[in-house]
Design a protein around this nucleic acid. Sequence first.
DNA 1: GCAAATATGTAAAACGTTTTAGCAAAATCA
DNA 2: TGATTTTGCTAAAACGTTTTACATATTTGC
Lengths: 337, 337
Amino acid sequence: MKKKISINDIAQQLGVSITTVSFILNGRAQEKRISEKLVKKVLDFVQEVNYKPSSLARSLRTGKTNIIGLMVEDISDPFFSAIARAIEAIAYQSGYKIIYCSTENATEKTRELIAMYNERHVDGYIIVPPEGVEQDIKLLLDTGKPVVLIDRYLPAIDTDFVVVDNEKSAYDATCHLIANGYKNIAFVTIDSLQPQMLDRLSGYEKAMQANGLPQLVKEIAYKSSEQAMQHIAAFIDRKKEVDAIFFATNYLCVSGLKATAGKGINIPQSIGVVSFDDYELFELYSPSITTVSQPTDKIAEHAINLLISRLKKAVSDKKFQKIILPTSLIVRKSSVR
Amino acid sequence: MKKKISINDIAQQLGVSITTVSFILNGRAQEKRISEKLVKKVLDFVQEVNYKPSSLARSLRTGKTNIIGLMVEDISDPFFSAIARAIEAIAYQSGYKIIYCSTENATEKTRELIAMYNERHVDGYIIVPPEGVEQDIKLLLDTGKPVVLIDRYLPAIDTDFVVVDNEKSAYDATCHLIANGYKNIAFVTIDSLQPQMLDRLSGYEKAMQANGLPQLVKEIAYKSSEQAMQHIAAFIDRKKEVDAIFFATNYLCVSGLKATAGKGINIPQSIGVVSFDDYELFELYSPSITTVSQPTDKIAEHAINLLISRLKKAVSDKKFQKIILPTSLIVRKSSVR
DNA sequence: GCAAATATGTAAAACGTTTTAGCAAAATCA
DNA sequence: TGATTTTGCTAAAACGTTTTACATATTTGC
């Protein structure tokens, strides 16, 4: 079993000092007036023995790890995995690595994960925050670690965030259903106080109100896909008057489709459907499902660039950026009759 | 901005030595005969100031990071993300953290990622290997880092792996189509020499041969979902005699469904469909798609337990485990007529 | 020919842990 | 009482870097 080589070995074998090797490897040779001859000698040798500095030791010394912690709700949700991959790609180009994890929207798990990331000395965070982690995030900010929130923000926390215009998006989507002749439009959401959910609800409510239509909101306590399906099925059975459903998230819509699939309900004739968050399934489903599509690439781009710019300048100008992006309504068959 | 507290601060403020604090925190107090009184005093103080040891410093000293590198082909593919989440869950329970990334099945990217993980001193690896990374993996093994391969193995590398019985699975799935009266069954796969793909092909070939049926294999050079769709569409147009398609991966099948959707082709009447790898879409699609379902939980469980057991015992008994798991055929409407 | 400036490099501290080897005081023994 | 053992704790090295502050040789200026 081979032993890893260290900067010390390099220095010894070449008969120079560790300092010199370090300067050369960090591109400070000219500044430190190391002769070109020696620079070449060292670089060649380093190449030859395939020496890689220990990032552990380097981080210990510099206090920087070049690692960004990314915490999303569920890495297997296509919306979040799309964002994650986009963020990763940009970060790599700037020399940052991403380590990600799924919070499952659970407060306790998230707090533990934050503690773990903090312990691992990640340089900065991009977080999709569940409720109840305000104190933990404040702690990060207090210790000088930049935090960018995405998908939703925490009203109590003053920091950068990137979200979409949830209220307007929901308003527009609801109006689209109304324009297609639907009148008894139900809004199916999760029982959560998170701002993005409240904004979507508010958009729906305003649209219905503006059109003098009755509001019908169903909150699901999301435990599992199976349970959600049953609750939605029961809801549809009970509320015969409903002629359209606006699902507040993609996974609620999937559960909803499973619920209707069993009943032989005709979409879009007997019930119109619109969902938040696009998904490959919605494009291929029969009928295809109309969705509010979030600009995942833009979200990723803004978030990571914002974070990197914070990391670059040690100065923390207290001007936090609150970025609100527009969505696009992708009209498919499920909402047109 | 608060400063992080170190073991040194603890020791100073309590008027004891660093060594003592370290022993107590590592649960070696009794062994080292530290008085209970002092133990309590230290633990209380540590709790009070919420001290967390620097994992960087610890890792530098011990050579262990308690981090496992997980490299899958595409973290946004539901098959891989399911495995990733299961692995993560088990690893956490044993005190290991997972950092994952997507190789995109690209040799160069994977080699860079391996180098990066190595540089970060991860303790062990779980890898879905693309072609051409044999040397890099051999290097890891030579430096004493355990590596478990999943989904596929590398014939040239002797190490642990967990795969499914691809040949038998493909054989059975093909026989299922044959039993339902399909005769001109095409096998659509990617142009890859990876063993799991060759095994699936081989299973198809043997089944067709055993039943005296003509073989028709279409290899797609997978670049993008869009391109794959066009190639499959062209293939279907050209080969009018084909009455069933067996897709070798889930993403090929999705492209295939997009291709047929445009043509008004009737599944399962005019063309039967079976896919490798289950997927939520396949359950909800009309008609629902028959799939070869891989036991993602079992794969994850075996892989992580194998790796952890290697990490626990420094002894490397050269007996590598080659685990081959069975799949299950989930029969849905797309293949029954 | 001598001081000053420049060129080329290095010693050593620091980052925050773990761990080996050992020391002083108290307790036990004979 | 003096030798030995036990108890309770600690000094210092090591892990592999970065960086500050300085050292030595050579060249330049006059």
